[in-house]
Simulated scan of single mutants.
Amino acid sequence: MKRTIFGRTAVLAIALPLALSACGAANEGPAAGGSGESAGEEVSGTIAGAGASSQAAAVEAWKAGFEGMHPGATVNYDPVGSGGGREQFLAGGVQFAGSDAYLKKEELSKVSTACKGGELIEFPAYISPIAVPYKLDGVDNLQLSPETLAGIFAGKITAWNDPAIVADNPGVTLPSTRIAPVHRSDKSGTTENFTDYLAKAAPKAWPHEPEGNWPISGGEAAKGTSGVMQAVNGGTGTIGYADASQIGDLPHAKIKVGQEYTGYSPEAAAKVVDASERVADRSQYDFAIDVKRDTTESGTYPIVLVTYTLACTKYDSAEQAKLVKEWLSYITSDEGQKKAQEAAGSAPISESARENAKKAIDAIAAS
């Protein structure tokens, strides 16, 4: 089973109106829900997290907002990568983690010890659309089916006037320019999510397992999102994949979903998460999903990266439990999600995702 991992960056905005117990009206800050209707509990102390670099910009925005509301609180986050974040969390080294993949079955066996006998909390908190930018003179409204997109990146479709591309773009004059696909040279959550999409939406055209390392030879390789964008922008007939917030003024392809062609948007990215099924046989506060890449639902954009927040229902002290609770309430609040969208171009999580997160956050307590 392919696990969802959602890349740079970028990946869910929730308006989470938590009415947490107040500790005195004179000392109350703005609501954890971010809208000012209810007061969040005043907290102090320090907590640490580690994990996905994809949400690093969002975490910085969250930290600024949260610590501004709670001057006595400090949140540290090390963007060491998803794997490193999961390792530190399961070893009990950090109080929360960010991961572009939900925990594997073998990792779940370590949760009880890491969580002091409590349960795992795992929910999407950051959604990042992955765009397909291109540079092709005279073409600014490109449409591609999953099969055509897979054929391009597999090296089977090599010219922009290939019959498959022509069929996706009726009435558009396409040049005979050679296609120059650009992929990541480094291991990447963006690559894993992109290849997961190709494998699920166009399995005949892309018979490769989803992989963080680019799985085939050919094409141009570039390091990091910035490298991919430099290569696409500096070439002719180029096409790549990257966090949507990083493509700048370059046009991006609309992707065929069902009978329609859909461009990325925060709403379309969040909608595919709601259309996806929850992973079976997980604990009550584990809301991991397998993104429905092959959805045909109108208005969805299936090339997305989802980053999960990992936490526990039990912590060593009441102070630590309250601080984690307030932090998670803030990042999933309407205000928190808006800050992530402004800082990192992420897609706000939906109301249903927000409610799931609230159920988990409400269960946090001292051991």
Rank of each mutant, 00 (worst) to 15 (best):
255 I>H: 01
346 S>W: 01
207 P>L: 10
326 E>S: 12
114 A>E: 10
328 L>W: 06
28 E>C: 15
234 G>L: 07
20 L>M: 10
137 D>A: 15
155 G>M: 03
311 A>I: 04
214 W>A: 09
75 V>G: 04
249 D>E: 10
249 D>N: 13
245 S>D: 05
31 A>S: 15
132 V>R: 07
94 V>A: 06
221 A>T: 11
119 E>P: 00
105 K>I: 00
303 I>K: 02
227 G>F: 04
309 T>F: 09
348 P>A: 14
121 I>C: 07
345 G>N: 05
249 D>G: 03
227 G>R: 08
101 A>W: 08
73 A>T: 06
79 P>S: 11
265 S>A: 10
178 R>Y: 01
142 L>V: 02
187 K>F: 04
122 E>G: 00
104 K>F: 02
18 L>H: 09
300 T>F: 04
19 A>L: 14
360 A>Q: 05
155 G>A: 07
252 H>N: 13
357 A>C: 11
271 K>W: 06
157 I>L: 03
306 V>T: 07
10 A>T: 14
296 T>K: 13
270 A>K: 13
7 G>V: 02
9 T>P: 02
264 Y>Q: 05
114 A>Q: 09
262 T>R: 10
249 D>S: 12
98 G>Q: 12
148 T>Q: 01
70 H>P: 00
177 T>H: 04
192 E>V: 01
329 S>I: 00
84 G>Y: 09
103 L>W: 08
122 E>Q: 15
119 E>T: 08
209 E>L: 07
91 A>T: 10
295 T>S: 15
293 R>M: 08
246 Q>K: 12
220 E>I: 01
155 G>I: 01
87 E>S: 13
29 G>E: 14
57 A>M: 07
256 K>E: 01
283 S>W: 03
287 F>W: 11
277 E>K: 14
85 G>N: 10
116 K>W: 00
353 A>Q: 08
352 S>W: 04
109 S>C: 00
329 S>W: 05
269 A>Y: 02
239 I>E: 01
80 V>Y: 03
236 T>L: 03
25 A>L: 08
311 A>C: 05
49 G>I: 05
107 E>T: 02
31 A>P: 05
20 L>Q: 11
320 Q>W: 04
356 N>C: 04
82 S>P: 00
319 E>V: 05
91 A>Q: 13
16 L>E: 14
4 T>C: 00
27 N>K: 07
174 L>M: 06
351 E>D: 13
285 Y>S: 02
318 A>R: 10
317 S>E: 09
130 I>W: 04
188 S>W: 02
161 N>D: 15
147 E>D: 14
201 A>K: 10
272 V>T: 08
359 K>F: 04
77 Y>R: 03
119 E>C: 01
9 T>H: 12
